[in-house]
């Protein structure tokens, strides 16, 4: 680990002021500290924001929820409102990491979680994300866990967060603040595909802080859930996952939200699947028909071709689990 300065701040203003002078925010530290140990991350200054008041989960006036950036994964997963209204969020959280990590990691940090690509984490390997211009060892290397969607010549790494998949399905909005004011960015715009600049993973500006994640209200009544497919039954990142929310009235699907994880360089919203669902009657045929297009545009690599079928089947299964009457 490279030596660094550590600064604990007591207010948002102090955090922003410190960040303006340079430094990285740290909250739970479950991702950042790991990467610092490997010297993949080498911040000169850490600004500890864990004392800030961003630990509330509150209902918005519009029937949605605002989750403070410092709410832990464990706290969010246990929140009665989230469990009742947004099972896909609590399920995505509970299927993430381990209990120990969920007690430390925060919602804001989770969205910024960095890829599990093994070459990214290995300093002696070529990685455009870690060392721009050095190449991508994964593209022609061992890429079983890598992305089939949203990739570029420069990067094929997946976004590892389960929560972000649920948030993408829900059209969640990231609340940001900086010295020049606050703004809101849809999560699907906030997380950026690698393109030719894979080192840029999100729309955060310099010295900008995530304060909350807002989840809009869904049409009611709605059922939702998250399915995570992986080799072992716990403590592993997704090979494929599906976040699904379906609002059904009078036996007809009125609204559908579907996103996939483990397959994209960013959480992968599946609008085409949603379009096939809306107006349909729940049935095995509908689930299969809708899921057929889940992997459209996929560009599999040498070791991850199985993800194309796996993605379709994961979406189909989760549509059935959520949507069967």
């Amino acid at each position: 680990m490279q030596p660094f300065d550590y600064l604990k701040v007591g207010s948002q203003a102090a955090a922003l002021e410190a960040a303006r002078r340079g430094g990285r925010f740290i909250a739970g530290g479950t991702c950042l500290v790991d990467l610092m140990r490997e010297e993949v991350e080498r911040p000169a200054t850490l600004i500890d924001i864990s004392a800030l008041q961003m630990r509330e989960i509150v209902a918005t006036g519009r029937g949605g929820l605002r989750i403070g950036a410092l709410v832990t994964m464990a706290a969010a997963a246990a929140d009665p409102h989230i469990r009742t209204s947004y099972p896909l969020i609590s399920e995505a959280l509970e299927l993430s990491a381990s209990a120990q990590l969920r007690n430390m990691a925060t919602i804001g940090g989770n969205v910024l979680q960095r890829t599990r690509c093994t070459y990214f984490r290995d300093l002696s390997a070529a990685c455009n994300k870690r060392a721009p211009g050095s190449g991508c060892a994964a593209r022609e290397g061992y890429n079983r866990s890598h992305a089939i969607l949203g990739t570029s010549a420069e990067c094929v790494a997946t976004h590892p967060s389960d929560l972000a998949v649920a948030l993408a399905a829900l059209d969640a909005v990231i609340h940001l603040v900086s010295g020049s004011g606050s703004r809101r960015v849809a999560i699907t715009d906030f997380l950026i595909r690698p393109g030719s600049a894979p080192e840029r993973e999100h729309a955060l500006r310099d010295a900008e802080l995530i304060t909350a994640v807002e989840v809009p209200a869904l049409p009611r009544p709605v059922r939702s859930g998250y399915l995570k497919v992986r080799d072992r039954q716990s403590y592993e990142f997704a090979l494929a996952s599906a976040a699904v929310a379906l609002a059904t009235r009078d036996g007809v699907i009125r609204a559908a939200r579907v996103a996939a994880g483990g397959v994209g360089t960013v959480p992968w919203r599946l609008h085409a699947v949603e379009q096939r669902l809306v107006g349909g009657w729940p049935s095995a045929q509908l689930w299969r028909f809708a899921a057929e297009c889940a992997a459209d545009g996929a560009e599999p690599l040498r070791h991850n071709a199985f993800k194309v079928d796996l993605l379709r089947r994961t979406v189909e299964r989760q549509l059935r689990i959520v949507g069967q009457p």
Binding site: D231, R232, S234, Y235, F237
Partner: peptide, 10 residues
């Protein structure tokens, strides 16, 4: 994390 051994759930 990448070399998988069984966990309790398995």
């Amino acid at each position: 994390a990448d070399y998988l051994v069984p966990v309790n759930a398995d």
